[in-house]
């Protein structure tokens, strides 16, 4: 009996290690959880990219109802992939989509928007990426949901998919899964 027990121990350890490794397989280390969820947005003031378009400041994000903030750049390939999704979202008048143009030449950004359409109500030009750093951005594209009081609710890293949009973003835009800021 005692011998049997000794045999079980390595098997047990092996199973435990396998379970942890299996969990590890499905983690996404590239997607860092945002430290800013449940925190207030930083104060910022970004200039406009062209005469016709508005700039962006933190006041635009505190509008009384939840908004989407997309960090994009014309040089960013994946941004083009998610762009049609934003175009479709923009058809819904209820949804406000704002944007930070990340380390981008404004002229290129304008050309990009002319080519693919502009779903954004307001765009701030973050030439040196400093405001993006205050938002904890480390790559483009990233998409934030911010509630009406400027409290960061959710952040999605990389290309936005329909699945994430339906599962995570739309409910939060409707005020569900609300996280309070202190």
């Amino acid at each position: 009996m005692k011998k049997n027990l000794l045999f079980i121990i390595p098997i047990l350890i092996f199973t435990l290690v396998s379970i942890f490794l299996a969990i590890g397989l499905f983690l996404k280390p590239k997607e860092i959880p945002s430290a800013l969820i449940g925190k207030r947005i930083p104060t910022f003031e970004l200039p406009k990219i062209s005469k016709e378009l508005n700039g962006l400041s933190e006041k635009d994000l505190i509008s009384g109802k939840p908004v989407l903030v997309n960090i994009f750049a014309s040089w960013c390939g994946p941004c083009r992939i998610e762009h049609p999704l934003f175009m479709e979202l923009a058809k819904n008048q209820e949804i406000t989509i704002l944007a930070i143009n990340h380390k981008d030449n404004p002229n290129n950004a304008i050309r990009w928007l002319n080519m693919y359409g502009n779903p954004y109500k307001k765009i701030g030009s973050d030439l040196n990426g400093r405001v993006s750093i205050d938002f904890g951005v480390y790559g483009v594209p990233e998409t934030f949901v911010i509630d009406g009081n400027g409290c960061i609710q959710y952040k999605h890293i990389s290309v936005l998919t329909k699945e994430i949009l339906n599962k995570e973003i739309l409910p939060r835009l409707n005020g569900k899964k609300h996280v309070k800021c202190n």
Binding site: I32, A35, K39, I133, G136, Y138
Partner: peptide, 8 residues
């Protein structure tokens, strides 16, 4: 930095 990016 941690405030913006977390302990990571």
């Amino acid at each position: 930095l941690v405030e913006r990016y977390g302990n990571w």
